[in-house]
């Protein structure tokens, strides 16, 4: 009988817990439908060379595939960090999403080019196959070419350390870092 008195309290605690949990859930986060699948096949021009490339061109792996465009402000924000990742030897392939190729080439010339290559996707068809719904987005391809992670939004060091670094162990990276300025 006495237990009955606590029902409202228990209900209140449960509801509060549920709602509190809800506060820390990002409602715009989408499940990535392509996880665990290989990168969708494509045949598109490369941004700088103009050659037609296919998904076979995405080597070496593991690698990042970064969806970007010159119209995307957040892409400018994350660009310096991509440069530093590239400098650490992490292969990054760009998907130049629904962009003007001339503007994209200017951007790379002015801000630096972190990409091993860039897939030109003016129509957004590769993006659609990948399940992209905005830019920037960054995908991780594992050593076998499977999509194992997707990040929507700006990629920075905190995000990389938390969600990406497990696929890029420090000692496995090719040593391309110049031996200057790294005084510890």
């Amino acid at each position: 009988m006495r237990a009955k008195k606590f029902i409202p309290l228990v209900a209140f605690v449960l509801l509060t817990g549920l709602l509190f949990r809800g506060l820390s859930i990002d409602p715009t986060a989408l499940p990535a439908a392509r996880l665990g699948q290989p990168f969708p096949p494509f045949a598109q021009p490369e941004l700088l060379s103009g050659d037609e490339i296919s998904d076979a061109a995405l080597t070496p792996k593991p690698a990042l595939v970064n969806v970007w465009a010159t119209w995307c402000y957040s892409c400018r924000v994350e660009h310096p960090y991509l440069l530093s990742l590239a400098e650490q030897g992490i292969p990054i392939y760009g998907l130049n999403y629904k962009d003007d190729s001339a503007k994209a080439r200017d951007w790379l010339e002015q801000l630096g080019d972190p990409y091993r290559l860039n897939i030109v996707d003016v129509e957004g068809s590769v993006g659609l196959d990948l399940g992209v719904y905005g830019a920037p987005e960054t995908y991780v391809l594992d050593a076998d070419g499977y999509i194992v992670h997707r990040h929507v939004g700006v990629l920075d060091e905190a995000v990389f350390t938390r969600d990406f670094s497990r696929w890029f162990p420090v000692d496995a990276l090719p040593k391309r870092m110049p031996a200057i300025g790294v005084g510890l």
Binding site: L30, P31, A32, A33, R34, D129, G131, Y133
Partner: peptide
């Protein structure tokens, strides 16, 4: 659509 964007 579901293959690309999930059941969502």
């Amino acid at each position: 659509m579901v293959a690309r964007y999930g059941e969502f």
